[in-house]
């Protein structure tokens, strides 16, 4: 059992430091020649590319050759009727499911088939359709968990007397950061509450705060507004716009068409497992096939 056993890889710790996606991108480029070559075809402004993604469950094809891109610093909406394969697409991108075929690239690197923690490690983070708060842990604990590559996650560093000190110091820093995030989301009064006791909307806020603390470049949000009351929804949206201005990129799955149309600059429409159309909200709105898809007809693609 070596000391490095449970440590996050070194590059992950470094990747944690810069706040800027471009810097990360350069790092990915220099990591190995294979991704370097792939990266040349990628415009710098497209951190996430999905190519011909397919996922089959037994005989059922949930995602059928979906391809799309998410641009740097954008708020992109992913919509589609029930069963269009949005959540499955999310799960394939983030490594929860292994795609049957297709490629997912993140900052030019092929991340298809990586485990969820490896995907998150590279700066592609997600939230869940139903908030996955850690119920028997306090809000603070939930958030303290999130920052990547904490030295104290190494068992030995946490336990051994002469390294404990540095862990404690790091904890102070993490606590500061966490508290800033709590204040940003205006939930600092809930810090000592068990996450399981929060309301549905508060859980959504907590989850968004938690995923932000992993310091991602791109966030995939699975129905962030489901079950959230209107005033909280307003606040959440404000937060999203504010964060986008800070340079974060968002891909949002949402049922509420109006919400997506009013807030996203790009919209991807999925239907029966593949991408039906993609463009600005105006483009999408004027596309008759989208309406047909929502009304439940067969759509020619």
């Amino acid at each position: 059992m070596s000391d490095t056993d449970i440590d996050a890889p070194d590059e992950a710790v470094q990747a944690n430091v810069p706040d800027d996606a471009d810097v990360d991108y350069e790092e990915a480029e220099t990591q190995d020649s294979e991704t370097e070559e792939a990266a040349k075809h990628v415009p710098e402004a497209v951190p996430l590319q999905v190519e011909s993604l397919t996922k089959q469950f037994g005989g059922l094809t949930a995602v059928d050759g979906a391809s799309f891109e998410v641009e740097q610093g954008s708020l992109t909406g992913l919509i589609g009727p029930n069963g269009a394969g949005k959540s499955t697409t999310f799960n394939c991108i983030t490594g929860v499911l292994e795609p049957t075929a297709g490629v997912v690239r993140f900052n030019g690197e092929d991340i298809t088939g990586l485990a969820p923690h490896e995907v998150a490690d590279r700066g592609l983070a997600r939230t869940f359709q139903i908030a996955r708060e850690l119920g028997e842990m306090t809000v603070l604990e939930n958030l303290m968990l999130a920052p990547m590559g904490q030295r104290g996650e190494s068992l030995w560093r946490s336990v051994l007397p002469f390294t404990r000190r540095s862990v404690v110091e790091e904890e102070e820093e993490v606590l500061e950061e966490v508290w800033d995030t709590l204040e940003f989301f205006d939930i600092d009064h809930l810090a000592d509450e068990y996450a399981g006791n929060l309301s549905g909307g508060q859980r959504k806020l907590l989850e968004l705060a938690r995923v932000l603390l992993t310091d991602p470049d791109v966030l995939l949000l699975d129905e962030p507004f489901a079950g959230v009351n209107p005033s909280l929804e307003e606040r959440l949206l404000e937060h999203l716009h504010e964060l986008r201005e800070q340079g974060y990129t968002f891909l949002i799955v949402e049922h509420d068409m109006d919400l997506i149309m009013n807030n996203c600059e790009r919209v991807i429409v999925m239907h029966q497992g593949s991408v039906l159309t993609e463009g600005t909200p105006e483009d999408v709105k004027s596309d008759e096939r989208v309406l047909e898809a929502y009304l439940g007809g067969e759509v020619e693609t």
Binding site: F57, G95, V96, L97, E98, A115
Partner: peptide
């Protein structure tokens, strides 16, 4: 049976 079917892990 949600025995981690589909939920891949490295192990």
């Amino acid at each position: 049976m949600g025995v981690a079917d589909g939920y891949r892990t490295r192990v």
